[in-house]
Design a protein around this nucleic acid. Structure first.
Length: 102
DNA sequence: AGCATGACGAACA
DNA sequence: GTGTTCGCCATGC
């Protein structure tokens, strides 16, 4: 489920573990989403770099093969990242439970 | 079964 | 805005 949602994240946007958890119904269990991502990040079809924590911090960059690439990819997709932190997070934030409900 | 840990989040001081 | 604590629940020892 997690993978499916993450794959739906539009380019240039990001979401949070909590948002995904909420969308999946496992709200409150954001850690489970992160845990799922840990197993998913290896799958090339899952843009885990677009998933950050609530603070817009690239907490999971450390788990990528190349941490620096996460920020690079985001920047390349139009998301401004500074010091491992997304700038104007609210502007790039994409909540599946909200966007997909439309 | 119990204890510690983790890509998190929210509440509280 | 920052630091701490608790809840969450799957995993590993």
């Amino acid at each position: 489920m997690v993978y499916e949602v993450v794959k739906l994240i539009p380019v240039g946007k990001v979401t949070s573990y909590g948002a995904i958890a909420n969308f999946l119904g496992t709200k409150g269990s954001a850690r489970m989403v992160g845990w799922a991502m840990n197993a998913a990040h290896n799958l090339h079809n899952v843009p885990a770099h677009r998933v950050v924590n609530r603070n817009g911090l690239l907490t999971g960059k450390n788990h990528f093969e190349d941490p620096d690439r996460m920020q690079e990819m985001l920047s390349k997709e139009g998301v401004i990242v500074k010091e491992d932190q997304i700038q104007d997070l609210t502007k790039y934030f994409w909540d599946p439970a909200k966007e997909l409900e439309l």
